[in-house]
């Protein structure tokens, strides 16, 4: 099972929206994943396989050991699907 963090500024609202759509996309692809939502500073000190966030917050996560995936439109399931196809390969 892969571990994915969805990250926003506060870890309360927008990261939860992203988590919902990422979980939906992963489930449809049959990829087993544990998706957790949180703020940037919590994510910085947590290990994971992938971090999904916006371009605006990615800078604060540079150097993290997880692979960083940028999503610009949180409500565009096509973009989220594409981002997952481009970055996440099921092991």
């Amino acid at each position: 099972m892969i571990k994915v963090l969805s990250v926003c500024g506060l870890g309360q609202g927008t990261s939860l929206i992203l988590k919902m759509n990422v979980e939906q996309a992963l489930t449809e692809k049959g990829i087993q994943a544990d998706v957790e939502h949180m703020d940037v500073s919590t994510a910085s000190s947590m290990s994971a396989d992938y971090i999904i966030t916006s371009n605006e917050l990615a800078e604060g996560l540079e150097g993290h050991s997880a692979k960083l995936i940028i999503v610009n439109n949180y409500f565009d399931l096509d973009e989220i699907n594409q981002a997952i196809d481009n970055h996440i390969v099921e092991n």
């Binding site: 506060l10 609202g13 927008t14 439109n73």
Partner: peptide, 22 residues
């Protein structure tokens, strides 16, 4: 939160979801 974290909560074209903590 906007001043500190920037406009990341503009989640999609045309749409912003500003908020703070519970």
């Amino acid at each position: 939160s906007f001043q500190e974290n920037g406009p990341y909560f503009v989640l999609a074209p045309h749409i912003a979801i500003p908020h703070a903590r519970p």
